[in-house]
Simulated assay, not measured.
Amino acid sequence: MFTHIMVGSNDVDKSKQFYDAALGALGVPEGQAFRPGSAFYSHNGGAFGVGTPANGEEACYANGGTIGFQAETKEQVDAFHAAGLANGGSDEGAPGKRPQAPGNAYGAYLRDPDGNKICSFCQLPEGA
């Protein structure tokens, strides 16, 4: 469906620290430099980048936008949330079951250091 997702940052080093920790909890390898002022993450055929805007203007977050990262387990969702909070992120929805989401969803939401809204979700076994 997509080739990659990219979000802007005004402090790429701080953002890389945040994403290395939060995405690392999901099994995603550490981000790699793509061009000066950016880091890219590749995992299971998907790519995610964070970097300074190419036009040289201030980065800002998308109002209403959310980027979701897949987790295999509830424990990974919990670790994603904790790692993000410990590395400059802010809580946007604590880990827990999400009855409004399809299936038996368990997820957590964060804001990265620049205000971008991200989440991680997994599907729990029936009855869990």
Rank of each mutant, 00 (worst) to 15 (best):
S42V: 09
S42N: 14
H43T: 01
H43I: 01
H43V: 04
N44R: 15
N44F: 07
N44L: 14
N44T: 13
G45L: 12
G45M: 11
G45P: 10
G46R: 05
A47R: 15
A47V: 14
G49L: 09
G49M: 13
G49N: 12
G51V: 13
G51E: 12
T52P: 00
T52Y: 14
T52A: 15
P53W: 10
P53S: 09
P53T: 03
A54H: 13
A54T: 11
A54R: 12
A54M: 14
N55I: 01
G56L: 10
G56W: 10
G56E: 12
E58R: 13
E58I: 02
E58S: 14
E58H: 10
A59D: 12
A59N: 12
A59T: 08
C60N: 15
Y61N: 06
Y61G: 06
Y61A: 14
A62P: 00
G64N: 09
T66H: 11
T66M: 11
I67G: 02
I67L: 08
G68L: 02
F69E: 05
Q70H: 11
A71Q: 06
E72W: 00
E72P: 00
T73H: 10
T73K: 13
T73D: 11
K74E: 10
K74G: 01
K74V: 06
E75C: 00
E75T: 02
E75D: 10
E75K: 03
V77L: 02
D78Q: 13
D78L: 04
D78V: 08
D78S: 08
D78Y: 04
A79K: 01
F80L: 02
H81V: 04
H81I: 02
A82Y: 03
A86W: 02
A86D: 13
N87G: 04
N87H: 15
G88I: 05
G88W: 05
G88R: 08
G89I: 00
G89P: 09
G89D: 00
G89C: 04
S90V: 11
S90R: 14
D91R: 00
D91T: 07
E92W: 08
G93Y: 01
A94R: 14
P95F: 05
G96V: 01
G96E: 11
K97T: 11
K97I: 01
K97S: 13
R98M: 07
R98N: 01
R98I: 01
P99S: 08
P99Y: 09
P99E: 12
P99N: 11
Q100N: 14
Q100M: 14
A101E: 08
A101R: 06
A101K: 07
A101G: 01
P102H: 11
P102N: 11
P102S: 09
P102C: 04
G103F: 06
G103N: 12
G103W: 08
N104Y: 07
A105P: 02
A105D: 13
Y106S: 07
G107L: 05
G107E: 03
G107W: 04
A108Q: 08
A108E: 06
Y109V: 03
Y109I: 00
L110M: 03
L110W: 03
D112W: 04
D112F: 00
P113G: 10
D114I: 03
D114F: 01
G115L: 03
N116Q: 12
N116Y: 03
